[in-house]
Simulated assay, not measured.
Amino acid sequence: MRGLRRDGESKPAPRTTGRAADERAADDRADDEWRADDEWRAAGPATADASPPKRFPKTVTLTVTTATGGVALAALIGFGLFVIGCSTSATGTRDEGAASVATAEPVSPPTSEPSALPAQDIDPVALLRRDPKVSGQVKADLKPCARDAYPVDTSYGNLTGGTAPDVVINVMTCDDAVGLGTYVYRESDRRYENVFVAEEPAVYATIDRGELVVTRQVYAKGDPVSYPSGEDVVTYTWADTRFAERYRVRNNYSGAVGNGPVDAPAPSTTSDNDD
């Protein structure tokens, strides 16, 4: 009877109408088929080619009857999708590879190159006067042009790679600022040592990107002091214990510049009345 349970215990049958009645009937048919199958296996087949009765899986139907049940079903479906999305590898979790480790760039140690600015400016006149490598003629011409203003240019820079800036001194004439001598001093044992000397008319030295650049004016016979024929520009670099010439450039000046106006033929003029 429809009101009896499978274990024989009596229980009033609930009222079923419509879709619920159909589901209840399907469950009863599935129970009967499973019971018939179990009895056939217990008795044994009559013939070798006997086959068990057809067996259908029990139909499970989920029916959402309340708002709470709908929320629970939606949560169950969402959890299933989450598990499928995460199970992309054999271990059940996403394999993102080895974690990257950020490494800091090594910091370069501070360089030991000397600064271009000395701790204290030197007295170039006193340094020249006590230097035995400076000629007596230059020392005699080393006089102030006005009061205590001496015709001396001083430059500081790194030329020899020492622990202190090197010093370049140019001595000139007071009247026309023509170079008389160029000298380079390098600090050694807290004293300045003369490592370069150039004493000749119209010579001047500068520091250019760690190299010594010496310019010498070239005079031809009859050239005035203020108008040389050209110049030699020589670049020196420090090599162990002395300066070595690196390259030389010769510049020749035009003789038509600086010696007054150039004579040129006067332009011809014509009259409007000429035939």
Rank of each mutant, 00 (worst) to 15 (best):
M1K: 10
A13E: 10
P14E: 11
R19Q: 09
A20G: 03
A20V: 06
E23R: 15
D31S: 10
D32Q: 13
R35L: 14
E39R: 15
A42D: 12
L73F: 08
A75C: 04
F82P: 01
A90H: 06
G92V: 10
G92E: 08
T93V: 13
S100W: 03
A102P: 02
E105L: 06
E105Y: 01
V107F: 03
S115N: 05
L117T: 07
L117P: 00
Q120W: 01
D121K: 04
L128E: 03
K133R: 14
G136V: 07
K139S: 06
P144R: 11
P151R: 05
S155Y: 15
N158H: 00
G162S: 05
G162K: 01
V171K: 02
G181F: 00
Y183F: 15
D189T: 01
E193I: 01
E193R: 14
V197F: 02
A198G: 01
P201A: 13
V203G: 05
Q217L: 12
Q217T: 05
D223G: 06
V234Y: 04
W238N: 04
T241M: 01
R242D: 10
F243L: 02
F243T: 02
A244L: 10
Y247E: 11
N251V: 15
V257L: 12
V257Q: 09
G260K: 06
A266R: 13
D275F: 06
